[in-house]
Design a protein around this nucleic acid. Structure first.
Ligand SMILES: NC(=O)c1ccc[n+]([C@@H]2O[C@H](COP(=O)([O-])OP(=O)(O)OC[C@H]3O[C@@H](n4cnc5c(N)ncnc54)[C@H](O)[C@@H]3O)[C@@H](O)[C@H]2O)c1
Ligand SMILES: NC(=O)c1ccc[n+]([C@@H]2O[C@H](COP(=O)([O-])OP(=O)(O)OC[C@H]3O[C@@H](n4cnc5c(N)ncnc54)[C@H](O)[C@@H]3O)[C@@H](O)[C@H]2O)c1
Lengths: 213, 213
DNA sequence: ATTCATTTGTTCTTTATTTCACAATCCTTA
DNA sequence: TAAGGATTGTGAAATAAAGAACAAATGAAT
């Protein structure tokens, strides 16, 4: 199957391609060449053509790509043609911001439940999403939930992830600054803002050195 | 200089190494081997030794690495021995969460000012940080500011980045789901949660396929 | 002091990703 | 319908990153 031959680097670019195509279609563009598309996403046009080629011939020589067709193809490929249900654990500053955000609705992903340990938060609704106690997470059978968003303090992240895993969740988007230790069948993506900020500062300082020397 | 030979992939791992060493030192561990360290950060021990070797001989054969020494070394290498001042543009849900967060204090990085267009927010303080009007950003000389955190709506991100750039800021941590078009001397890191979530869903579905087939 | 176990630093190999270059193909227009 | 221009899809080459293997060096134990 395609899944075995699509490089990881390619797969990680697909969401960006998808979003950019959504914008093009919304703006009424019906066709685009790999070079124009490359300028938009700031990726070399060869890389884009090769990325698409892993899925077969999606374009037409001498013409380019049909935006609507390509968008629909990526929508299916990224499983965005069905609703993806996720939960959120840790309704603090960051968790509340995520609950208030609408990117989940725009992209066929929805936070269906939130969980916390704070009695003051349990039972309330944040932006329409109910907050439950952690016990209810452990008790539930979550086979229809694709992933858990972790926005708990670092010290509690491992414990929270294990509870979600025990309830049947295998996917994690971890915002805590800590490495999770989970079995092989779990899949974690780590959004680590401390790391990003430090990497930014490192590269800024080093690009200066390169220019001065 | 080292800056020209350190691979990008290595540089991006340094913040994770640094944070993990901080924890080890805090827990009283004085030494660690590359293999033990590798388990902690979930990276192959060879990769870790190779990463460190770009900076010279940081360990001792038959002994391992001195945690305090290595931590101090990375602290300097990552410019965490001096205060890094940043600004934040867009005091909305996400911006407020970031302002409330303390990761900036822990890591010698500080949001010194915030900017917004909303008259209701201008002049207020969020978690001790003053909110200014965008005009004041344009007027300022920001040579002592290393970076701007962008938490404005996607449609306003380019404009906000250009204003910051005009005031002398070259580094950007962009949380908006849009690609920024900036000159070469600017450096952008993109934290894109929509992309992360879609990539997570993609890999989850594909790891299932691999197992079933 | 000598032996032995440990662990680094590094060379060499393998794998992954990007980029080059161009024939094949399709659109467009006259 | 034929010619010319545009643009894809893809092998082959180049670059980057990760991993295996091991000699060299050190620490610890006796
Ligand atoms: N706020 C930010 O902007 C920001 C930025 C970067 C990283 N982070 C990380 O995101 C995480 C959350 O940050 P925050 O600022 O929202 O913190 P917060 O303290 O505001 O919120 C944490 C929430 O988790 C809940 N919680 C604590 N232990 C729990 C447990 N065992 N199970 C379930 N819920 C539990 C708390 O009741 C609280 O509601 C932290 O790991 C932080 O480092 C936050
Ligand atoms: N909230 C989240 O959890 C979340 C998650 C992922 C991505 N994002 C992205 O982060 C960005 C901010 O999200 P949010 O939920 O905080 O939105 P928000 O609407 O709550 O906040 C946006 C803020 O930016 C200000 N603003 C608008 N135009 C501006 C301009 N030209 N200059 C300066 N300030 C301006 C607004 O006044 C507002 O305070 C968006 O791009 C969003 O897609 C947010």
């Amino acid at each position: 199957m395609a899944s075995q031959t699509v490089p990881q680097a390619t797969a990680e670019r697909l969401p960006l391609y998808y979003r950019t195509l959504q914008q093009l279609v919304a703006n009424g563009k019906t066709r685009i060449s790999s070079s124009k598309f490359g300028e938009l996403v700031q990726i070399d046009s060869t890389t884009i053509r090769k990325d698409f080629s892993y899925f077969g011939a999606l374009g037409r020589k001498g013409y380019g790509y049909d935006t609507q067709y390509l968008m629909d193809f990526l929508k299916k490929t990224l499983y965005q043609d069905e609703l993806n249900r996720v939960i959120l654990i840790g309704v603090g500053h960051l968790g509340t911001a995520l609950l208030n955000h609408n990117f989940l609705k725009n992209n066929n992903t929805q936070i269906v439940r939130a969980y916390d340990v704070d009695p003051k938060k349990i039972g309330t609704k944040v932006s329409g999403t109910k907050v439950f106690a952690m016990d209810e997470l452990a008790a539930n059978d979550h086979h229809e939930i694709v992933a858990a968003i972790l926005t708990v303090p670092a010290a509690q992240a491992q414990e929270a992830a294990e509870k979600a895993l025990a309830s049947g969740i295998r996917g994690f988007l971890n915002f805590s600054p800590t490495t999770l230790n989970l079995p092989e069948n779990a899949y974690v993506r780590h959004v680590d803002m401390t790391v990003e900020l430090q990497a930014l500062i490192y590269f800024l300082n080093h690009s200066m050195e390169t220019k001065n020397s």
